[in-house]
Amino acid sequence: MSKEQRLSEIIAEHQSREGPLMPILHDVQAEFGCVDADSERIIAAGLNLSRAEVHGVVSFYHDFHGEPDARPVVQICRAEACKSRGVEALIADAEAAAGTRVKLATVYCLGLCSVGPNARIGDDLHARLDSDRLKKLIETV
């Protein structure tokens, strides 16, 4: 299925509801990692909006990105269990290690609550993290 076809599907799915733009943008962002200029164009045509209007909304919200992020991603869980097991103390070092090269994403619960703090890189889960291990993970990703 081409990107265009997939976009039409997403548009069709939400078209009839009130305020279809935001859910469409979320789905597109989730599916393609960004809402690029072509997608803006197609969504605009689909919803009878101008290109400028769709772009205005995309650029307003931090959730949407104009182009996919090419950086490697390290997802760090900051939900209740991991929090209570001390994830917050690791964040400052993690950020320093990530710099601009690695993207840190916050997620909420990776399903390993008893062995946190936890992180995920691609499909691999990493448990029982401390500052050093997390730093290493980030530096070698």
Partner: peptide, 16 residues
């Protein structure tokens, strides 16, 4: 449209 938000916001014709 107004592109962006807050201090970063600026008038933009069309898309990026």
């Amino acid at each position: 449209t107004i592109d962006g938000r807050g201090f970063g916001s600026e008038v933009s014709a069309g898309q990026t």
